[in-house]
Design a protein around this nucleic acid. Structure first.
Lengths: 343, 343
DNA sequence: CTGTTAGCGCGTTCAT
DNA sequence: ATGAACGCGCTAACAG
């Protein structure tokens, strides 16, 4: 790749004149400017972003930690975030969460050495150890968490209206005649706890309660977990059967439907199911899954904007810990009955 | 973030001594070294990768163009590739293909300004315009394509054994008694054409042929395309019905099964279905999908290694255009019958 | 053993 | 209108 100095030599002018000419600085003659720009274009000159970063003190890089590269939910968020950040001249340094854990290398050394201007933290399972958090804090820029938040950390946060979603789910099931409502979720992540809380609130409001045996906590959040399947299989072999379940996400809901069918249940006649996320898979299974749209694009955009705000305001550090909650919307499909049906 | 100069001042030594001390250069006294390292650690010093890149002439950045952030297939490839590249000290600059198309900004300006040492091109629909290809070529490092290749371009390539997979699919269907075999695919991308070619070869070998009306070409490769659904719906309303179909990927196979069921067909009794990719969705639908495992992790690793080889050999430019083909393996599940069944 | 110097590519003064 | 000089953070080749 050609350099400013090289272009200067080709044009018979100095390096700094080339620099000015290329950015249409007024103090350059029309003729020189055109000539320089012409030569630069011919050689596909593009200024070196790393150098500009060094000078300006801004790398124009955002560190992104994701837990799953191929997850459609994270993917849509990330894509929207990337669009906003790219627009503002930022590039993404993406590192998979889980891959790094347990390596002797510090989790965020790569962010540190690239001098990232900020960090986006994507859905991650549980709270990491204090050392990891300390390292995260020792980085220069602000941190924005997406989807999950860690208690007691004053990072920015953008996520779904989980508690409201949990309530809506229960309300919907109750309206459709469900009386023995169960839940399949994750008790160890913030979004899981929030949805559970919302569900419990709504149950109480409806004069219902959730039998201990009808709440199933799937320990870890691994794609297509064999353990989840066997837990679900066991769940549907219990004596006390639910007539409606609310699942933490669409993938789990799909698994649950599969196992429920295997146990001889008919959806939605014997069992109504509600998922979360409105992912493509929900429309590929039969019956199609009633679920919640989380507006992942909006989440991504909001997260990017929040991060950019914090970066610009990094001097004051005023509004750290801002929390943005994006509403969710029920999408009714075949896995629930029409409302009004009462046994 | 603290700098070498700063550390030097704190330790009362020069910048270059600090530099040497930190990298255990022998020409530094034990005492100085320990002191310097201590101070550096205390301040979380990490050398600036951008600066090192400028000096070494290697940005240690790899440009990655993907068409879909949330695609599980691409995701697994990308994750494996990232692991290999990360190991070697490379970071990824990821840009979504489609987002960039149609912007006035050059598609690869961001790769250019980051001085990427190489480029990984992920599954992309059709061949881009010549201008885009020209820009790609004007970049510094080598280019490796994954999954798809463009005719007449001597880029590196790593992909699946598509032709063999196509043949295997037909053989499997024929062995299970299928006589009117159809195919749902993409005629405009290389992997689609290769699978079709393999299928046609196998059909001929088995004394069969594919009725024109049984080949359905889904134009573009968009997630959950409404158009695909309506095309598929029409497909299963034709007079001439297939008794077996081979689908370009699992998502399409899932859509096809859904529409086939809607048309009153039973899987696999009336219609046997084979997909491609062995994605999670194949195990969430009923019946579970017979498909091909593409070993995405292996593809990702191979692609990363090929790219690294080319980068190291960039001086000679000898082995450009290397093509690596990763074998596929049939995974039999419920959407096909047991072999040997003949009508 | 340590410090000085030069240079990577570029932007920004400040002189000319 | 143009160029020289300095600095960004760091490494490497020298000099002491």
């Amino acid at each position: 790749m050609i350099s400013l100095k090289e272009i200067g030599r080709l044009c018979g002018v100095s390096e700094s004149t080339v620099s000015k000419a290329l950015k249409d600085h007024p103090a350059v003659s029309q003729k020189t400017r055109q000539h320089v720009q012409e030569v630069a274009r011919k050689h596909h000159y593009v200024p070196n972003a790393h150098v500009q970063g060094i000078q300006s003190g801004r790398s124009q890089c955002i560190g992104v930690a994701v837990n799953d590269f191929g997850d459609p939910y994270s993917g849509r968020i990330l894509c929207a975030a990337q669009e906003v950040l790219h627009e503002k001249g930022f590039d993404l340094i993406i590192i998979p969460w889980d891959l790094m854990v347990g390596k002797n290398e510090g989790l965020f050394d790569r962010f540190a050495c690239r001098r990232t201007d900020g960090v986006l933290l994507f859905p991650t399972a549980e709270i990491p150890d204090t050392k990891t958090i300390a390292q995260l804090k020792s980085l220069d820029g602000p941190v924005v968490q997406i989807d999950q938040c860690w208690q007691n950390e004053r990072f920015g946060y953008v996520g779904s209206a989980n508690e409201d979603g949990g309530s809506q789910a229960i309300e919907a099931l109750a309206k459709r005649g469900c009386r023995r409502i169960g839940m399949i979720g994750y008790g160890r992540i913030s979004s899981g706890r929030e949805r559970l809380q919302g569900a419990l609130n709504a149950l109480q409001k409806n004069g219902l309660f959730m039998d201990q045996s009808l709440f199933l906590d799937l320990g870890s959040d691994k794609e297509d977990d064999q353990k989840s399947r066997s837990l679900l299989s066991k769940y549907f072999k219990q004596k006390k059967q639910p007539d409606g379940i609310f699942c933490f996400n669409d993938r789990i809901a799909a698994l649950a439907i599969k196992e429920a069918k295997a146990a001889g249940l008919t959806i939605p006649d014997d069992l109504q199911v509600i998922g979360f996320g409105n992912l493509p898979v929900g429309r590929l299974i039969s019956p199609a899954l009633t679920t919640f749209d989380q507006q992942p694009e909006l989440i991504g955009r909001k997260a990017a904007e929040l991060l950019l705000n914090h970066i610009d305001a990094t001097a004051r550090k005023a509004d750290a810990g801002v929390r943005i909650v994006v509403p969710v919307k029920l999408v009714e499909q075949g896995s629930t009955c029409n409302p009004g049906r009462r046994i």
